[in-house]
Amino acid sequence: MTTEKDQISGKPAGPVGSAPAGTPAPGGRPSEAAQGMAVVARSQGQLVRRRFLRHRAAMASIAVLFIVVVLAFSSIGFLGIPGWWKYSYDAAGTVVNRGAPTLSVVPTWLGGNGFSIGEHPFGQDDLGRDYFALTMRGTQISLLIALVVGVVSTVVGTVIGALSGYYRGMVETVLMRFTDVIITIPVLVIAAVLGQKYGNGGPFVLALVVAAVTWTSLARLVRGEFLSQREKEFVEAARALGAKPRRIIFRHILPNTVGVITVAATLSVATAILLETALSYLGFGVRAPDTSLGLLVSTYQNAFTTRPWLFWWPGLFIVAIALCVNFIGDGLRDAFDPRQNRVRA
C-alpha cells in the first residue's frame, strides 16, 4: 500500500532490513549492526490486515453481512427503539393476495413489473403477520445468539485450552478428558437436552446452551497452540528472566495465538447459527411468540408446497449469514497463515 514501506524481503529465511539508500559513508558508519535499519519493514499486523483486505470473498461477505445486520436491526427496531418498517413482527393483519410476496425485482423490459416493494414484500403468514418483519426478527435473534455463542465459546475454549496447554500434567489430563467426553456425545443431543430443560429462558440462555457444546474444538486448537508456543525459545527466555506464568501466558503466548483463535472464533459463529437453526427447527430452541430463522423454517415447512416463500425467505437468510461468516473466517485464516504468501496476479 505504501511504497516506501515495501521493503520487507520475500526471502523465506526471514526479513532482511537492508540499506540500499541512506547508508552512512564507510568511514563514519555507526556500527555494523545499526546499518540496514534505514528501511521500515511492515509489521505482522499490517501484513495480516493487508492480506485480509485483499481477500475478495471475505470483503464481499463483510459487505453482505453488514447489509443484513443493518437491515435486520434498523427495519423493525430493537429493544424498544422503533424501526422504519411499518409493520411489527407480532401484529396480525388481514391477509392480502393469499399472503404472496409483493416484492418485484424483475424490470419491466424483461416483462416484469419493475422494481417495487409493495405492501408485504416477503408476503404474510396465515395470521396475516408481515413476513418481512418476522424474517428480520428471526435474523436479529439468530445473529444475537451466534454472537453470544461466539464470545462465550471462545472465552471458555481459550481458557480451557490455555490452562491445559500451559500447565500440562494433571490439569491437562482432566480438562482434555472432559473435553473429549463432550466431543464424543453428539452436539445436537446435548444441546437438545439442555435446550429442553432451559429453553424457556429466552435467546440468551439458549445461546449459553449452544456455547456449552461448541467450545470444545476451540479448546483443543488453543491447547495445541499453547503446547507448541510454550516450547519456543522466547518463552524460555521469559522464564529465564523470572517471569511468572501469568505474564508468560498473557504477554507471550496468547498474543501469538491470536490468529488461530480469531479464525476459530469466526467459524464457531457460523457453527452456532446452524446449530441454533437446527435446535429451533427441532423445537428445542427459540419458542414462540419470539422467533428465529430456524423456528420460521420449521413452522412453515408444511407450507412449502403451497406457499414456498414462507420457507425460502428465512432459509435464504440462514444460508447468506452462514456463508458470509465462513468466508470471513477463510479470509482471516488466509491472512494469518504465514504460508499464504502467494501472489494474486
Binding site: 520487507i8 529465511a13 526471514g14 526479513p15 532482511v16 532490513g17 555494523e32 549492526a33 540496514g36 535499519m37 521500515v40 519493514a41 509489521s43 505482522q44
Partner: peptide
C-alpha cells in the same frame, strides 16, 4: 518489532 531486524541484529 523483531521481524524488522536481520539475524545478527
Amino acid at each position: 518489532y523483531p521481524h524488522e531486524f536481520s539475524g545478527g541484529q
